[in-house]
């Protein structure tokens, strides 16, 4: 019995915490992550620029970074090459 009440309290506390999180700092975190992704794209562009026809850095040393960028590579290309229009102003980010 007590256990169940405890579990319920714990559940509602967690829910409450998430509600408060959503009301207060969620936007900050979201903004921060957005800004970070924006930079991640820029960073990848500098290193992989060749692939889009924008050679920026000589690739000798940059090759060393390639392994780390493999996972984000596909989504990066998609996000760089996709069309952009005014709906981008609405807060929906892909990639």
């Amino acid at each position: 019995m007590i256990k169940r009440i405890e579990a319920m309290i714990e559940k509602s506390v967690r829910a409450l915490r998430e509600v408060i999180y959503g009301m207060t700092v969620y936007d900050w975190v979201h903004e921060l992550e957005k800004a970070r992704n924006e930079q991640e794209r820029l960073f990848t562009l500098i290193i992989f620029g060749d692939l889009l026809g924008v050679p920026i850095l000589p690739p000798y040393h940059m090759l060393r970074l390639v392994p780390y960028l493999v996972p984000s590579f596909e989504s990066w290309r998609r996000s760089m090459l996709r069309e952009r229009d005014f709906t981008d102003l609405i807060d929906q980010e892909i990639g």
Partner: peptide, 16 residues
């Protein structure tokens, strides 16, 4: 740029 990125991640995870 990379350091700045890390800074963002740090702040984000600090808030969370």
């Amino acid at each position: 740029l990379r350091e700045e990125m890390e800074e963002y991640s740090k702040v984000a995870s600090l808030i969370q």
